[in-house]
Design a protein around this nucleic acid. Structure first.
Length: 1010
RNA sequence: GCCGACGUAGCCGAGCUGGCCAAAGGCGGCAGACUCAAGAUCUGUUCCCUAGCGGUUCACCGGUUCGAAUCCGGUCGUCGGCACCA
């Protein structure tokens, strides 16, 4: 019965149902009554109230708090903590919910479960947001308000850490707790907490000890005033260019003998050197002549400035007018062809070197410019280039690409009809698109043609690197990095790429580490299985990773050089371990400054003497010991669940850091990858479909359990699903429906003695339970949800429909059913559990065990026979051309049953053949009289038996069909709405005007309608 | 191009360790029940044929097998990744 928890609780009065009505009448009464309640209440249940009630009960009983219990099996799982970049949307809860449901299931199957949560705030998200709030950025303020952040709260978000604290609170209270997660909130941690920093420092100390930290040059965006800046879409540090990317160019040196300098061009496609036919310069620009070593290079002044950041000893020693370069001849690298310098307007001094080498065959711009140049009288007139020089410049075909002709650039221009475009902006846009397309296709599908020296016949993908290497080796090329678009610092200065010589990397390319990690992964449970295979390749593929950065960034200081801050991926690899310790630092029992490397060495790696560590840290020995035991009790981590974006970044580093730092016994045991909930057409969650509403709003609208069920059941975990409110609504109805059905069963006063249908129901439910357990061994929540919310529901319905009304059976079944709902819809389960009057909390109960003694193959088979008979009667009636009102059912002639039994006996002995069985039958006097019927039936039985499961056939052979059907006669009559008569086929006195009984076989009674 | 995944009835999606698969379940459609009414609930139905036990299906073409949606080969098509960043 419902316990009113406070005065506001709306008590739902329940209809009293007499026990002697047919099922459909009961169902009707329930609907009718409930509809009346619904009118006044909107919803049949007050979800919010129900959720609050049970969440506070769980908290009261500290169910979420996990403590070491030596000797008891444990299960530790996490979801990869989210980055604190703002509010989350409903899609994010998919993975988190999965984790909670798994945790709850494990809790119910005897494990001491630890499910801790945290957040990842490293980076500049919080800085950026705080800055935008500070300047009252309209979009930002609107965003906060829209998501339910009160105005006065916004006022308080002044410092980045205020933002972090604010969202830490939102995530825990508005998301995770609202969804009913049983997470151990006491262990909550955030990457910006001082104790977390101590843990990260220790991690890096260990990496250094294992020689996994290496230093080498790195190229980063840099402001001449502010130093390193972050280039990202949120534009924390910059005022322009958030979408810019760093690109690696190959600088090609063209010797100009006449002037004793190199004209330098930058290209992204070094393989096109074989197709170079001319060189482009802007006649209206002034170029810089810079000294680089002993050489003189000509580049744009903008480029000269950038180069000074990347190369040592580069300085400008003079200038040269672009006009003066036109008509010069220079020597192309690698091919050593002499090519002329032509004028071109499309050259941008801000891109690359401001000089361009031309490969018209594969570069649309070059193709187009060459056409224009050749048609331009200025070329021979104003610039005085001899006609024959101009005529000699013709495109050279160098790359063959499937779907393109000799000159891909020409093809793409024609295909996209770019030449006819008059609008210059549109022209530029199309041209860039064309360029991208040809580059992409060329790179992935192209093959170098004959005439490309040693690279002929090589795939472009490979030739590109080889050709670049060849030119670098011969001194004809250099590497140069540049941003893809203009980036301007907050201070107004241009940001360029600067070489940083002492960048630190974690060496994930280390052979031993990679191999050891791969080997360990073979022993892990990794879902989906494709990823289990794939992770091997991903680990191989992983190289050094820059692990620290400079500048405006929140995170842990690099312990070996405080100017660096550890970046966002590298400080989130070993962290699950930290949850075993954060309990102590969060509660103040240990202070961050006590968490020295010696402390972690002791509690994690069990290195050092407790007395010495205690003396050095001031942590008493007993506490040290307690922490050490906690760490080793909970670790290894059993499941790390994360979104598919983690497959190539977080999971590999998670695995490798564990392998590098922790002993065998502490290596992670499982990974589950979850796919996304997306908006329509894989867009972001869209407003129109409702997913863009704040999560608390969605919970209020649908109820936490409806959403949990939706996440668990809507699709396999390993596919993306589109968020669809209507579908969530359907799940809500599904749940309400189940709740009503359960309530009605509880409220029913009926009680009839158990019969065959009771055995059937208990058998069914026990079969389901073992299905569920098998599914959960694979962490397959979806299958579990199907079994609990669909299959079990339909079993219950059938039981009632068949007249099952045993109080004892109902309560036994409900105990199993409600209990099974706990992992996915815990609030509903608790509510129903209480209503049923079961002891304690559902969350504390153990998951039902499959009781094999309850399995009753005959009962299950019998019910399916009855269902089939009803189905057949309905079907025949539908087909019948005449009005019918009576169904006559004939069970199999006994001789057929005899044959079946013989066949089964032979099959069991492994010697069932059609001739042998026929012979055996024909040996029987009585049977032989049947004549031709025998071989026909024998053949059918034998074939059928070879194809099917012997066990089921045995159940069939032992079943007394006639008795079964007689016992269900009234039911069949009620279901079909027809008078029903049942005869054995051998019954001489049967009513059988069209001799139907003849066709009856075991498991398939004959039917005659009239 | 390379690597990976995938192609199931109107739609979404199970099944894919080969046989009880014309193929779960859900939506949607249709019919009926109950209704003042309901995005409610319940029942039936939803490839073709048919007084049921038959026929043709699981992208297409072949193969293995007594037997294939399930295994193998090929074809066509779709999606994702291909290291910049998370």
């Amino acid at each position: 019965m419902l316990q009113p928890s406070d005065g506001k609780r709306v008590r739902r009065q329940r209809p009293r149902i007499p026990g002697d009505l047919p099922a459909h009448r009961i169902v009707y009464m329930i609907r009718y009554n409930r509809a009346r309640y619904r009118k006044g209440e909107q919803m049949s249940r007050d979800y919010a109230e129900m959720e609050r009630k049970w969440q506070s009960k769980w908290a009261e009983k500290k169910l979420n708090e996990s403590e070491r219990q030596d000797g008891r099996p444990k299960f530790m799982l996490i979801f990869a903590y989210p980055g604190l970049t703002g509010y989350l949307h409903v899609g994010h809860l998919r993975g988190y919910t999965y984790a909670d449901a798994l945790g709850r299931y494990k809790r119910m199957t005897g494990y001491n479960v630890l499910f801790p949560v945290g957040t990842h705030a490293t980076g500049n998200g919080a800085i950026s947001l705080a800055a935008k709030i500070a300047k009252r950025d309209e979009k930002t303020i609107d965003y906060l308000l829209r998501n339910g952040c009160p105005e006065e709260e916004i006022e308080r978000l002044k410092e980045p850490m205020d933002v972090v604290d604010f969202f830490n609170n939102v995530y825990q209270n508005d998301y995770w707790k609202r969804f009913g997660f049983l997470a151990d909130w006491r262990r909550f941690t955030c990457t910006l907490y001082p104790d977390y920093a101590k843990f990260i420092e220790w991690q890096f100390t260990k990496l250094k000890e294992r020689d996994l930290l290496v230093q080498k040059p790195y190229y980063a965006p840099f402001c001449p005033v502010h130093g390193p800046v972050a280039v990202d879409p949120s534009e924390t540090d910059i005022s322009k260019g958030g979408m810019a990317e760093t690109q690696e160019y190959t600088l090609l040196k063209f010797w100009c003998g006449e002037r004793k300098f190199f004209l330098v061009a930058a290209t992204l496609r070094p393989e096109t050197v074989y197709g170079q036919v001319c060189f482009w310069a802007r006649p209206d620009l002034e170029y810089s002549v810079v000294a680089k070593g002993d050489e003189k290079w000509v580049v744009s002044p903008q480029c000269a400035e950038k180069m000074s950041l990347q190369f040592d000893g580069v300085e400008e020693v003079g200038r040269v007018a672009g006009r003066d370069l036109i008509g010069l001849t220079c020597t192309a690298p690698l091919t050593h062809r002499e090519i002329p310098v032509f004028p071109a307007g499309f050259v941008d001094p801000d891109v690359g070197t401001g000089l361009v080498t031309s490969c018209p065959s594969d570069a649309p711009d070059d193709w187009n410019s060459l056409q224009l140049a050749k048609a331009d009288p200025d070329l021979t007139g104003k610039y005085g280039i001899p006609r024959e020089v101009v005529d000699a410049v013709v495109p050279i075909s160098i790359i063959s690409i499937k779907g393109y002709g000799d000159f891909p650039a020409q093809d793409v221009i024609e295909k996209m009809k770019i030449q006819s475009v008059k609008d210059p902006a549109r022209f530029r846009e199309l041209m860039d698109e064309a360029k991208k397309q040809v580059y992409k296709d060329g790179y992935h599908m192209g093959v170098m043609k004959d005439g490309c020296g040693e690279f002929s016949g090589m795939r472009v993908e490979e030739a590109k690197d080889r050709i670049q290497q060849a030119m670098l080796a011969s001194g004809e090329a250099e590497l140069f990095r540049d941003l893809t678009e203009e980036v301007v610092c907050r201070c107004g200065q241009r940001v360029h790429i600067k070489r940083i010589d002492d960048q630190w990397f974690i060496n994930y390319a280390d052979r031993d580490l990679t191999d050891a990690t791969k080997e360990h992964c073979r022993d892990m449970e990794i879902f989906p299985s494709q990823y289990y295979e794939n992770v091997q390749g991903v680990l191989d593929w992983y190289r050094e990773r820059a692990c620290v950065r400079l500048g405006n960034w929140l995170g842990t200081r690099f312990p070996f050089d405080g100017k660096w801050i550890i970046e966002a991926i590298s400080d989130s690899t070993l962290y699950p371990l930290f949850y075993t310790i954060s309990l102590y630092s969060n509660s103040g029992r240990i202070a961050p400054e006590q968490m020295t490397p010696a402390f972690f060495d002791y509690v994690v790696l069990e290195k050092g003497e407790p007395a010495a560590v205690s003396a050095a840290t001031g942590i008493e020995e007993g506490l040290l010991e307690e922490i050490r035991r906690d760490v080793h009790y909970w670790y290894p981590l059993d499941i790390n669940l994360g979104g598919k974006e983690h497959m190539t970044v977080h999971f590999p580093v998670f695995l490798m850091n564990h392998r590098a730092i922790l002993p065998d016994a502490m290596q992670p045991k499982g990974i589950i990858v979850n796919w996304y909930v997306t908006g329509k057409n894989k867009d972001k969650i869209s407003k129109s479909k409702g997913g863009a509403q704040p999560i608390p709003g969605a919970v209020a609208k649908f109820g936490a359990d409806s959403m949990r069920l939706y996440y668990a059941h809507v699709a396999s975990m390993f596919v993306d699903v589109e968020w669809d409110e209507d579908l969530v609504f359907t799940y809500r109805q599904k749940l309400e429906n189940i709740m009503s059905a359960v309530s009605d069963l509880i409220a029913s006063e009926a009680d009839v003695p158990p019969s065959g249908i009771d055995a059937w129901l208990l058998s069914r439910l026990n079969t389901r339970v073992s299905e569920i357990r098998a599914a959960m061994d694979r962490y397959d929540l979806r299958q579990m949800a199907t079994a609990v919310y669909y299959d079990m529901a339909s079993d219950m319905r059938w039981y009632v429909r068949r007249g099952g009304r045993s109080r004892e059976t109902v309560m036994q079944a409900l105990r199993i059913w409600i209990n099974a709902m706990m992992p996915i819809t815990p609030h509903v389960a608790e509510e129903l559990w209480e209503e049923a009057g079961f002891e304690g909390l559902a969350s504390e109960a153990q998951f039902p065990e499959a009781d094999d003694s309850r399995r009753d193959a005959a009962a299950e088979y019998g019910e399916s026979l009855i269902q089939e008979v009803i189905g057949d009667v309905n079907e025949i009636r539908k087909m019948a051309k005449t009005e019918v009102s009576k169904a006559v059912i004939y069970t199999t002639p006994m001789w057929k049953l005899g044959v079946l039994r013989d066949a089964i006996a032979m099959a069991e002995a492994g010697n069932l053949t059609i001739p042998d069985l026929t012979k055996k039958c024909m040996a029987d006097e009585e049977l032989r009289k049947k004549g031709k019927e025998i071989p026909d039936f024998v053949k059918k039985v034998a074939i059928d038996l070879m194809r099917s499961n012997l066990k089921d056939k045995k159940a069939l052979a032992e079943l007394d069909e006639e008795a079964l059907l007689r016992s269900a006669g009234d039911f069949i009559a009620a279901e079909t709405g027809m008078e029903t008569e049942i005869y054995g086929a051998d019954d001489e006195g049967r009513f059988d005007p069209s001799n139907k009984a003849r066709v009856a076989v075991p498991g398939r009674p004959a039917i005659y309608l009239c």
